[in-house]
């Protein structure tokens, strides 16, 4: 029996490797603009290296912020799963969504490693609003809020990746988060797709 695997982990890893190559190539390459000035003073590779390093560092920071939020989502679904408030069918879906977030972490962490960074670890504890979770709908609302925020977070990150392939990979994750959000809204009896545009 064949299994279908989402393509974003490999896409992210491939993208990160390409970015690393680009970074290494640019480190020894002279290009015009600011670099041209540096060429005259004999420090081209240092400037090119610094520029590439800055953009790569920024991509790593964006990826790590996403990883941090994904870790929190995994912990939130764990809280929901262990709350005893979810019906069996809902619990099954929640665990599946949690698995998606774990896959996102693996893929994003691989990308950070490939870029020469260090992926952030999960916190030892999360300060969730446990006192507000009294029934299944409370858990679903809490999860829906996180998923809705995640859609916006990825939408806000996509335009600012220096490496546009990372943007494409983040869009793949965004689509998954949006599906989670829609399904959770549907389970809450809300319009699953309330708007034509989203930000």
């Amino acid at each position: 029996m064949s299994t279908l695997k989402p393509n974003y982990p490999s896409l992210l890893e491939e993208t990160a490797i390409k970015a690393r190559r680009k970074f290494l190539m640019q480190a020894g390459t002279a290009t015009f603009s600011a670099t041209a000035v540096a060429l005259l003073s004999g420090c081209t590779s240092q400037v090119a290296n610094a520029e590439s390093s800055t953009s790569t560092d920024q991509d790593v920071r964006i990826l790590n912020t996403a990883i941090s939020a994904e870790h929190e989502a995994v912990a939130a679904y764990q809280l929901g799963a262990e709350s005893g408030l979810l019906e069996p069918g809902t619990l099954k879906v929640a665990v599946k969504f949690q698995g998606h977030h774990k896959e996102h972490i693996d893929a994003l962490s691989s990308a950070v490693n490939s870029l020469g960074g260090n992926p952030v670890e999960a916190k030892t504890a999360y300060n969730f609003p446990i006192e507000k979770l009294k029934q299944q709908s409370d858990v679903l609302e809490f999860a829906a809020g996180l998923e809705r925020g995640a859609v916006s977070a990825y939408a806000g990150a996509i335009p600012i990746f220096d490496n546009r392939d990372l943007s494409a990979a983040a869009a793949s994750i965004l689509a998954d988060e949006a599906m989670h959000w829609a399904i959770l809204r549907n389970a809450l009896g809300l319009d699953p797709v309330p708007e034509a545009f989203f930000s």
Binding site: T65, A69, E72, G145, L146, R148, G149, A150, S152, S199
Partner: peptide, 15 residues
């Protein structure tokens, strides 16, 4: 503010 909720909340430190 719903856009901010992936990382922020009013009462708690998160991402």
């Amino acid at each position: 503010y719903a856009r901010c909720l992936a990382c922020h909340s009013l009462e708690r430190d998160r991402t």
